[in-house]
Design a protein around this nucleic acid. Sequence first.
DNA 1: ATGGCTTAGTGCAGAAATTCACAAAGTTGG
DNA 2: CCAACTTTGTGAATTTCTGCACTAAGCCAT
Lengths: 229, 229
Amino acid sequence: MTQLQRRRIPDAAVARLPVYLQILNNLANTNVLRFSSDELAALAGVNAAKVRKDLSYLGSYGTRGVGYEVTYLMYQIKRELGLMREWNVVVVGAGNLGCALAKFGGFAARGFPVVGIVDIDPKKIGQITGLLAIADARELGNIVRDQKVKIGAITTSSAGAQSAADALIDVGITSILNFAPVVLSTPSSVSVRNVDLGVELQILSYYEQMRAESGDSSQNSQKLSHVNA
Amino acid sequence: MTQLQRRRIPDAAVARLPVYLQILNNLANTNVLRFSSDELAALAGVNAAKVRKDLSYLGSYGTRGVGYEVTYLMYQIKRELGLMREWNVVVVGAGNLGCALAKFGGFAARGFPVVGIVDIDPKKIGQITGLLAIADARELGNIVRDQKVKIGAITTSSAGAQSAADALIDVGITSILNFAPVVLSTPSSVSVRNVDLGVELQILSYYEQMRAESGDSSQNSQKLSHVNA
DNA sequence: ATGGCTTAGTGCAGAAATTCACAAAGTTGG
DNA sequence: CCAACTTTGTGAATTTCTGCACTAAGCCAT
């Protein structure tokens, strides 16, 4: 028993792998067979050494002097990201966004089918959205158990988000995609990703203001790039 | 002329300021007057020293032994983030998401009114969505000039995203919020923030798989927390 | 006043992430 | 089979971020 446990990939690299995967997908659709770290770096807008290091966390799957094979690398990235299987998703909160997610087939296509949507509002329960009927939030436990759901999306109002999170965690959810503009309080064993457009816009606002301030008065304009993950 | 140029706030801190602001907003609504770095840290789910360091980039606005004043700090964060003014936003791509952004009043309320939405599809042009009529994409320049728009949101298909970005940059946009699942190629003088649910789900998938692998076989379960920005 | 208590602000050390730069390893052409 | 060339994989340097631990400073009770 030499330790076989998979090497842990740095968070920053994990966040880039899906982007590489997307690009490789496009390459595959254009019938490109191989690529070099330089090419992928250009397409992803990052440094080539970073690409090589990121890919090296998966193993040694390139060929020196040649590059990487598109389909093989895609396979390896998918394997590492856990995309060899589907992950069922349950949506909590049947407002505009929640229903849009339930209707939108794009997630299923990417391997994340929405298998349930719940709400606490009796007026909404029973309505059909896409292929699903909106269920009573009290059904959450059954849905999660029956469909082996691990990922929950919170699309409630801000006010309801924390109780939605509590309910999800209570029935065994360990990954949360949170669209409500609040910071959720969760045990450290749960992964949370926040999607908040207000936050994104405010970040843009900061850099925009910097630009305005350096550009307005005189000659001290200054390079000011900024791209997020 | 000693250099007066504003100290540059680290990117990581800039990304947290909007979160603090949101929390302070809630505190203000609950009539809380003051808070300590410890309290804010608990609410934001971060380390207290980090909170103090982040706030110190704004200036020295706390009182030792006491804490920070809610409204005063909100003012300072807003000032630093460039939120003392409104930033008009133009949306490119009048699909489901684009129209939802145009209708949704939430952005205007947060200081980012959508003042225009354009598309290239003649069938869509002229239709009303919320308060706005969908304009011809060729009107982009006029809209941006007339309304002094600095921020553009791309809600086109993947295929159309790069040309949308080119068009936005061409008419002088310097900040882009990109919802299309592609990596945009832009000059370094432009800020880009990507919002891609597929990427978020795949990141969750990775940590979910890690959890499954450490939990399944034996006793080497391991703490595995993970929370994003 | 004074001493004890609280909390901001910050220097510094350690961790994480990025980038450089080069050796290792493969290909190709003669 | 060798020399020239390409590109990976990675050690090491650098930069950025984090978090501890301590100092500075204000409040309050006596």
